[in-house]
């Protein structure tokens, strides 16, 4: 409020603008547009160059036969229609990548949500002691660089590493996680869940805190067990929050890239190659057209999955 007062007191020298007639209003209008564009100018310049232009050019790349050799001679590029897309779906590696991405999403999202919700409920169940400590600790992986995480987790997953040592205590002989095609994906899913559950946990926690305690107390007075109260009172009221979490996670998890990039390079035997990783590889090979097409398949999948989730949750609500 003080700042407003400053503006008022210091503006005495200029006569304030009076209500103007139509001709001057026009010029005032265009002056305003000019001022507004001036305010937006730095943003627009950077956004158009490094945001919009790449999107437009990737769209056009996805329907041409452009490769890394054509970058400096764009006129030798031919329009090929949807050929890149048909090539994609004829490529076994891409199909494997699509399947792997599906595996990651179908296993990873529910697991992340259950852990996040479980911890959020535990944190919200009236405990006071060390609540802040728990919340900070659970959130720490979220802010940590994936490259540093990879350095550590590669040790943890070694055949005689910490995870298998822990399993040995309970008598389980653990696999060679990252080098076994059957276990590489579960290993990456576990790591991704560890890295990401903090975000949905905090969102769930906020949702739980907005549910009035009286509702749960009332159910309990009516004789409902804790579990029954959770299922019949808490969960239905959390539905909007659950939708937000599900959509956010699917957008993030469909773009599954960093874990295979730093941990397995998509291997062994393409068992952890995702769509994003496939696109990155094609980019590396110089097949810009194929790479762009693959990334638009991903955009379509993200849009589709988000839409389906909106439908499901809205139908139930």
């Amino acid at each position: 409020m003080t700042s407003v007062a400053t503006v008022k007191s210091s503006s005495g020298r200029a006569a304030g603008p009076r209500r103007t007639g139509p001709p001057q209003a026009m010029s005032a209008h265009s002056r305003r547009t000019l001022v507004a564009w001036a305010f937006c100018a730095p943003f627009i310049a950077l956004f158009a160059t490094f945001g919009l232009w790449p999107v437009l050019s990737s769209l056009s790349m996805s329907v041409t036969d452009i490769t890394s050799r054509d970058v400096r001679a764009p006129f030798s590029v031919d329009f090929v229609g949807l050929e890149n897309y048909t090539t994609l779906f004829g490529d076994p590696t891409f199909l494997r990548a699509a399947l792997n991405t599906l595996y990651f999403v179908v296993a990873g999202i529910p697991l992340t949500m259950i852990i996040a919700l479980g911890l959020a409920v535990a944190l919200n169940s009236g405990i006071q002691r060390a609540k802040g400590l728990f919340r900070v600790a659970y959130f720490a992986p979220v802010v940590t660089s994936i490259v540093a995480i990879a350095v550590v987790w590669r040790y943890l997953y070694e055949e005689d590493g910490m995870i298998n040592s822990a399993l040995a205590v309970v008598g389980i002989h653990g696999p060679d996680w990252l080098n076994d095609p059957n276990w590489s994906m579960p290993a990456l899913i576990l790591m991704a869940v560890w890295r990401h559950f903090g975000i949905p946990m905090v969102i769930f926690l906020a949702g739980l805190q907005s549910i009035p305690e009286e509702l749960r107390e009332a159910a309990r007075i009516d004789g409902a067990t804790r579990w029954r109260t959770f299922r019949s009172v808490t969960l239905p009221l959390l539905r909007p929050v659950t939708l937000v979490v599900a959509v956010l996670l699917s957008i993030g998890y469909l773009q599954f890239f960093e874990e295979p990039f730093v941990m397995t390079s998509g291997g062994p035997l393409d068992s952890t190659t995702s769509i994003s990783y496939y696109a990155y590889e094609q980019f590396g090979f110089g097949n810009y057209g194929t790479a762009s097409a693959a990334s638009y398949v991903l955009v379509a999948a993200i849009a589709l999955l988000s839409l389906v989730q909106f439908r499901i949750f809205r139908a139930k609500a």
Partner: peptide
């Protein structure tokens, strides 16, 4: 509207052309 659209486009989509642009 363009700003909102860009919010939902994943980084993987623009990575290649952005690299080409910045190199050029």
């Amino acid at each position: 509207g363009l700003v909102l659209t860009m919010l939902i486009i994943p980084g993987a989509t623009t990575f290649v052309p952005l690299f080409v642009l910045v190199s050029n």
